[in-house]
Every structure is written in structure tokens, then in C-alpha cells.
Amino acid sequence: MSAEETKRGGVRQTLARLLGSGSFDAVFLAGPALFGLLLFVAVPFAIAIILSFTNLRMGSPLETQFAGWEQYRRVLGDEAFRRALFNNALFALVVVPVQTALALGLALLLNQQLRGRILFRTLFFMPVVFPMALVAIVWKLLLAPGPDGLMNSMLQLVTFGAWAPRDFLRDPLLALPAIMVMSIWQGAGFQMVIMLAGRQGVPETLYEAAAVEGAGPWRQFLHVTLPQMRNTIFFVVIVTTILAFRLFDQVDILTQGGPQLATTTVMFEAVRTSFAEARVARAAAMTVIFFVIVVGLAVVQRKLLREEREIL
């Protein structure tokens, strides 16, 4: 046995003693992923929490000090950040029900024995493979101001000329709705596919039984489809809500948070604070607040699902 092999054997034995027999293989298998998650996810998150309680600012001559809850107080008192929270919540309030209903509706339509349903499914899913940056840019052209814009001229057509052309992305009332519409366009296909899978998991015998009892399509939907797809629908609702709070790309490309903070979001404020202002501690506090919101949503999801997860 060479020295090298003895050494490796020694490491193996030490590990085995430390972690139990057969654990060398386990460490070899799980080690890289655990190391990656620790170094690139857990550590930065811990750093964010620590930084959020300091006064660190890049390039500031002041010494970094413990600042208690000061950053949180400032962030929550900041007009732009409050508006960002409001915008994210409004975005979720509109996009989540609309997108979920649209996805459910499309899924139910496509669950019928229709000719060409694969083709339709493919078409509705197509925007999902589009990067959001590209979606934003294509929609910027669709939303072009003046009568030349496709959206403006279509709205004029369907309102028989009553619609006066608007500059959607520079209008404080229309900028956020415009971003909502393009986000729904990009995301609905993803949710539709999840809904379709959920619908196909509902036993057909339930519908047959309901039909025997004389339930029409509407009552079948209310009393079979909705309760049976409960978990799928909640899943889609929570995922879409969390996505709504992650909103960034469209805002950065189209409006930079404007006009007059009408489209600013938590992530946009965090990035702006971190880069344009180099206020590291404040951005960290924003990040932590963002995380608390997401965890809150996840906890709500668990409660609603009442699902017994059999993990481990």
C-alpha cells in the first residue's frame, strides 16, 4: 500500500468515525451541493441580515458601526420604498387573480377533446421561453405612444375611435397596468400547464357521478373541479404572488421606476439603493424585508394547503 493510499484510507476512516459508516460516499455525493448552497446562498443571506443592522455605505469615511433597527426605520419611512411595497402589492392584487383565472380557463378549455389542442397549448406556452428583457422590449414597441402604436390603434378600433392615444409608459396611471399586461402575457402559459396537469389528476368518475345526479357544467366546475384542484390553484396563487414581489426586469428596462414612482418596486429600490447610492446597509435591510414578505406568503401557503408532507 502506497503512502498516498494509506493517507486516503486514513481520511476515509476519520470521516467514517465522525459521520457513521458508509458516510464517505454520502459526503462525496452531497458535499458539493451543500457547499455551494452554504457559500452562495446561506452565507450571503446571513451577511444581509448582519449588514442591515449596520450603517455601512461604500466610500463613506465613517467607520462601520452597529446601528440597531435604524436602517429598517429609515427604509420603512422612505416614501419611495413605501410606494414600492404598495406597487408590488397592487401588482399582485391584480395579476394574481387575473393570471390564475386565465390559466385555469385555458387549461379547462384545453382539457376537452378538441382538435388541435396540442397546437393551442404550444402557442399559449410559447411566451414562457421568452426572456423577460425581450418581452419588455417587444411590448415597448407595441405600446408606442401616439396613434402609431399598435395598442393605441387597437384600442381606438374597439372603442370606435373613443380612445385617445396615450403614452402608456409615461402615464402615471397606465404605466403599471401596462407592465401587468405584459407580465400576464409572458407568465400565463406556465401556470396553464400546471393547471392542466392538476385538472388531469382529477378522477373522471367524479364528473360521471356528478352528471348522474344531474349537475350541469357550471355546478360540476363549482363542486368537483374547484375543490379537487384546490392544491394546484393555491400553488399557482402563491408562486404568482411571490413572482409579483420579485418584479424587476420590466421596470428596469421600461420605466426605471417612473413616472413619479408609479412603477417602482422593492427589488428596483434595493438595486438602486445599492448601486446608485452605494447605501449597502440600507439595501440589505430592504432585502431582508423582501425575504420576510416571501416567508410570510410561504407560511400562508402551508396553512392553506394543510398538506401532510411526507419528507424524511
Binding site: 452531497a30 451541493a33 451543500l34 448552497l37 452562495f40 446562498v41 446561506a42 452565507v43 450571503p44 443571506f45 451577511i47 444581509a48 449588514l51 411571490i242 420579485r246 424587476f248 427589488m267 434595493a270 438595486v271 445599492s274 449597502v280 439595501a283 440589505a284 430592504m286 432585502t287 431582508v288 423582501f290 425575504f291 416571501v294 416567508v295 410561504a298 419528507i311 424524511l312
Partner: peptide, 24 residues
């Protein structure tokens, strides 16, 4: 313990760590 750690990270969206990860 390790699997619990992985599951805990499931809900952590990338955006929550983007800023500190940048400095790292």
C-alpha cells in the same frame, strides 16, 4: 439536519440574496 437546511433554502428567492452576494 442537512436536508432540513436544503428545504429551508427552497423558499429563499434569488432576489433576497442578490445584493449581499454581489459584495461577496
Amino acid at each position: 439536519l442537512c436536508f432540513g437546511f436544503v428545504l429551508a433554502l427552497l423558499i429563499l428567492p434569488f432576489e433576497a440574496i442578490a445584493v449581499p452576494l454581489f459584495y461577496q
